[in-house]
Lab assay of single mutants.
Amino acid sequence: HSHMSHTQVIELERKFSHQKYLSAPERAHLAKNLKLTETQVKIWFQNRRYKTKRKQLSSEL
């Protein structure tokens, strides 16, 4: 499990705020920019979407 830097997370968050789903080319581009693997980016987005979904569910209770 590799640790992401604060800067990388900020960039991922910024991208996520604009779009929740990335196409393969977008993911490849973002990964390259942030010096991450595409898998890391993919998993981060999956986890981030899951967290957002959970938060929405709990706020509706």
Rank of each mutant, 00 (worst) to 15 (best):
K32H: 10
H6R: 13
Q46G: 04
I43V: 08
T39N: 11
V9G: 01
L12T: 04
W44N: 00
Q46N: 07
E13D: 03
T7N: 11
S59R: 05
L34Y: 00
R27W: 06
Q46P: 02
R27T: 10
L61T: 15
M4Q: 02
L57G: 13
R48P: 01
K20I: 05
R27Y: 10
L57V: 14
F16S: 02
A28Q: 09
Y21S: 05
F45A: 00
R14T: 05
S58C: 15
L61I: 12
T7Y: 14
K20G: 06
H3D: 08
Y21R: 05
K51E: 14
K55L: 14
Q56I: 09
I43T: 06
Q56T: 06
K20W: 06
F45I: 02
Q56F: 09
Q56P: 11
A31T: 02
Q40V: 05
E26Q: 06
K15D: 00
R54Y: 09
K20A: 07
A31D: 00
H1L: 10
K53E: 11
L12R: 01
R48D: 00
L12S: 01
Q8A: 05
F16L: 02
T7F: 15
I43K: 09
H18R: 12
A31P: 01
R54S: 12
K32P: 01
R14D: 04
L36V: 03
S59E: 14
R49Q: 03
K20T: 05
W44F: 04
H3W: 13
S17A: 11
A24R: 12
E60C: 15
P25Q: 14
A24M: 05
I43A: 06
K32Y: 09
F16A: 03
S5C: 09
E13I: 08
Q19H: 08
L30C: 06
S58R: 08
L61N: 14
H1Q: 10
E26D: 05
Q19T: 11
A28Y: 05
V41C: 04
E60K: 07
P25G: 15
L34S: 00
R48W: 05
K55I: 09
K53G: 09
H3A: 10
K15W: 13
S58P: 15
Y50R: 15
V41P: 00
E11H: 06
S17I: 07
S2V: 11
M4S: 00
H6F: 08
F45E: 00
N47L: 12
I10F: 09
H6P: 13
W44M: 02
E26S: 03
H1A: 08
I43M: 11
S5F: 04
T39P: 04
I43Y: 09
R54M: 12
L30S: 00
S5K: 03
R49N: 03
S59M: 08
H18N: 07
S23W: 03
R27N: 04
R27F: 08
T37R: 02
K15I: 15
Q8C: 14
V9P: 01
N33P: 00
L36K: 01
Q46L: 06
L34F: 02
P25F: 13
H1D: 09
K55G: 15
Y50T: 11
H6Q: 10
K55D: 15
M4V: 05
A24L: 10
N33C: 15
L34G: 01
K51A: 13
S5V: 03
